[in-house]
Amino acid sequence: MSSAPGSYYLPNPSAWPIIGSIGLFSLLLGFLLLLNEGSAGPWLMLLGACIIVVMMFGWFGKVIHESESGMYNEDVGMSFRMSMLWFIFSEVMFFAAFFGALFYTRALAVPWLADTDILWPGFEGGWPTAGPKGPMPIEADTPVSDPAAQFSTIGPWGIPVLNTFLLLSSSITVTIAHHALKMNSRGNLILWLGVTVLLGVIFLYFQAVEYHHAYSELGLTLGTGVYGSTFFMLTGFHGLHVTIGAIMLTVVWLRCLRGHFKPDNHFAFEASAWYWHFVDTVWVGLFVFVYVF
């Protein structure tokens, strides 16, 4: 707690972190039980998720209240900005692990597996592949009749290129909204931020359509060998991050409706926008390395 006016704001003791820990623990314990056939699992997960939501409302609500009542000086804002950038860096490294898995598999593991005739004679390798024991790949976007024997992949020039267009547009609209905020043009701010969220939601809808298509017609599932694993884990975690980003932008949008943020002070807006650009950039990587090549 800072006593000098205008100095760095130091918060009082807070119970929100421990509540967050309890929520996180319940969520993971519930997930653990769910995976290991404990009947309480789903309920414990739900409880944990609810606690985390309450914690976020309480914690962020307090931060917003402190910010709106002018307790933060510029240094506090700088701390927030820096920490968001480092957090995004940690997210980049999380995706790097999965991209690394994709590159390692495609460039090294599968060719080595095909080169040896000891374990799996006759395995040709190549990409896509579901491995020596998995179904055989056929041409992209072709419905398969026997998913145990064949699978098809999703070609880049249908939904994926449309989704690329949607997400790239949303990066532009969020930038327009940011400029509107800086010019104090509230109407444009609310309009373009709303459009951004909408584009994100449409993206998620198409992603769901694509997943449904893959599971029901193409025989492509999470269990379709290493191709299915990398495809669904990469696009799935990306979709999760789009969801998180869209929720963040929605909260910011609601706050805009309430008249929050000033042209020179709008950390939550900036943080969400950075996060959105990050999610976008990851998608470009996905489009290139998962869909096109």
Binding site: L35, Y104, A109, A130, P132, G223, G225, V226, Y227, S229
Partner: peptide, 25 residues
């Protein structure tokens, strides 16, 4: 976190990151 997540999905969700039968390693 990514590595142990892959372990988890290999254990419970049928992925094949570390299973040569599915093309993993």
């Amino acid at each position: 976190a990514g590595a142990v997540t892959m372990l988890l999905t290999d254990r419970h969700f049928g992925t094949a990151f570390f299973d040569p039968a599915g093309g993993g390693d």
